[in-house]
Amino acid sequence: MLKANIYVTLKNGVLDPQGEAVKKSLKVLDYGQVEEVRIGKFIEVWLEGDDRESALKELEEMSDKLLANPVIEDYRVEIVEVN
């Protein structure tokens, strides 16, 4: 069994209204040092098998097809656990 963490983030230059709103809220809470907030997604996937290389390939394919939208998002896959 393998476990992967997939981080989906908005590309540079893509406006993040959610991040903007959270930033404003942090300012209201007096965290004046906050300069920017951007919000992404964290996806955990558990996979059968223990071949990390082929799993990484599959996970990247999953990300390209469904988990991330290449028009607005970047992603990073890391395989974190092998049992």
Partner: peptide, 17 residues
Amino acid sequence: LLEAGLLPGAMLRNSSL
């Protein structure tokens, strides 16, 4: 249609949230 690639681009959350 955007997600299917039949039209170009993507949708973001409304700027006003």
